[in-house]
Simulated scan of single mutants.
Amino acid sequence: MNYTALEDRLFEEWKTRSRQCGDGEEIAPDGLLYRGLFSYADGYWTRRPGDECRRWEQAPRRVLILTKDLNDTEAWDIRCETGRRNFSGPADATVSAPFYKNLMRWVYGLLTVDRHGNTRPFDEADRPDTFRPFYDEAPVARVNCKKQPGGSQLTNSALQGFLTRYADLLERQIRLYDADILLCCGGSDLIKDFVQAHYLPDLCRMSDWIWYSPSVRKLVVNSWHPSYHGDTHEGMYNAMMQHYSEFLYAFPGFFPGR
């Protein structure tokens, strides 16, 4: 399946809706992250399209990251993101922003757990030479609930407004990927609540972190925002993995068999 083409068609509808609602002319495309060549030009890292569609279709487990919006005043294609530090030179592949470091650790932990529910320890997930190359190659989709460029903050009331105005489009995009694990990041339950209201109505609460849809065997991880400062990176990782592991012990048949 050509996910990129389907995404682009959806974004054209999003642009039209955005103009009609007075939310601006620009949107930031997102979705299945590109897995082609890295490049560095004019101070910016980027990535080109590659075999991300094949990787996604063949993945034993699929992770969809749902975040709030683009923390930038100018729109750019999130599918090109690398997490690398810009303006650092083409030889510097450092990932320094807490947002990306946490996302990469979390995805590493969610995708490397074994069938018995044993997760990787933080000291392993915290190594840049472990989480960065893993994330670079893993099939990952990342979707912003608000597609328009933003700033450093998005209030929950504003987020709810965008979730309401674009609910049908966001639901279609979420359904497109048929992900096994939906990692909902921030928004004080608003993102998780949207998934439950529009996509997985039978979500059952397993813990503060974990929700499960038994009818389609999909897991929702209700997480902090990746830039959250109220806990340490280690504390957030360990809490997520503990609840994830406890769920897998209780539901050993969760893993899909693609």
Rank of each mutant, 00 (worst) to 15 (best):
R9W: 02
G50Q: 00
C184K: 04
L10V: 04
L203C: 06
P226D: 08
S207V: 08
T16R: 08
F247V: 03
Y199V: 15
K218M: 06
R172T: 03
H225Y: 08
A250M: 12
R142A: 15
V216I: 13
F247E: 05
R105Q: 14
L203D: 02
G161I: 06
K68C: 06
I78N: 12
P60C: 10
S207W: 02
H243C: 07
A91C: 04
P214K: 11
L219M: 14
R85P: 02
T130W: 04
G230N: 13
L159W: 00
M241Q: 09
D30T: 00
C184F: 06
G24S: 06
R175W: 05
L183S: 02
W56R: 01
G117M: 06
I27E: 00
R61H: 08
V113K: 09
R79W: 08
V63R: 04
W106Q: 12
R48D: 13
T67N: 13
S223L: 04
F247T: 03
H243V: 07
K146E: 11
W76V: 04
V220W: 05
W14V: 15
M104Q: 15
M240G: 00
V195K: 00
D129G: 04
M236V: 13
Y212R: 03
A91G: 09
E81N: 12
I191N: 00
R9C: 11
G22F: 13
P49F: 05
A91R: 14
A125L: 01
P201E: 03
E57C: 10
S215K: 13
S207C: 08
V107N: 11
Y237F: 10
T164Y: 09
G83H: 08
D202T: 14
L176S: 00
E234F: 00
Y100T: 12
E26L: 14
S245C: 08
L169Q: 11
N238S: 05
I65Y: 05
R105K: 12
P90R: 15
G36M: 03
G150A: 11
E7C: 01
R19N: 04
Y177H: 01
R85K: 15
L64V: 08
G43D: 03
A59H: 02
A28C: 14
Y212V: 01
F255A: 00
R61C: 14
D178I: 04
L190D: 05
Y40P: 02
